[in-house]
Amino acid sequence: MEDCMALNAHLDTLKRKHQAMSEAVETAQRAPGSDDLQVASMKKEKLRLKEEISRLSS
């Protein structure tokens, strides 16, 4: 039971990080002169979080 609660807490944390990263990517893409390399790196991290969420959810 504790493992399940810990997993849910971890998933919630990952989901919040994913949402924050999503917002950061959108903000960076709208900014004039944004760094494409930085945006690509942020997108990669966002994808890594999404994959981790999917893996833990199944």
Rank of each mutant, 00 (worst) to 15 (best):
M1Q: 10
M1N: 06
M1C: 00
M1K: 07
E2D: 13
D3I: 04
D3H: 04
C4R: 11
M5P: 06
M5C: 06
A6L: 09
L7V: 04
N8P: 00
A9H: 03
A9M: 03
A9C: 04
H10S: 12
H10I: 05
H10Q: 15
H10W: 10
L11F: 08
D12K: 06
L14I: 07
K15V: 14
K15E: 15
R16M: 03
K17I: 09
H18R: 15
H18N: 15
Q19G: 10
Q19C: 12
A20I: 11
M21C: 05
M21E: 13
S22C: 07
E23F: 03
E23N: 15
A24Y: 05
A24T: 12
V25A: 07
E26V: 07
T27Q: 11
A28G: 01
R30K: 08
R30Y: 04
R30E: 13
R30N: 09
R30A: 02
A31P: 10
P32W: 03
S34G: 11
S34P: 04
S34H: 13
D35E: 12
D36F: 09
D36T: 08
L37K: 06
Q38A: 14
Q38W: 10
Q38K: 11
Q38C: 11
Q38R: 15
V39Y: 01
V39P: 00
A40L: 12
A40P: 02
A40T: 06
S41Y: 01
M42K: 06
M42T: 05
K43Y: 14
K43R: 15
K43D: 12
K44I: 04
E45S: 08
E45L: 09
E45Y: 04
K46N: 09
K46T: 11
K46R: 14
R48S: 10
L49N: 05
K50Y: 13
K50H: 14
E52I: 10
I53N: 00
I53W: 02
S54D: 07
R55P: 01
R55D: 04
S57M: 05
S57F: 07
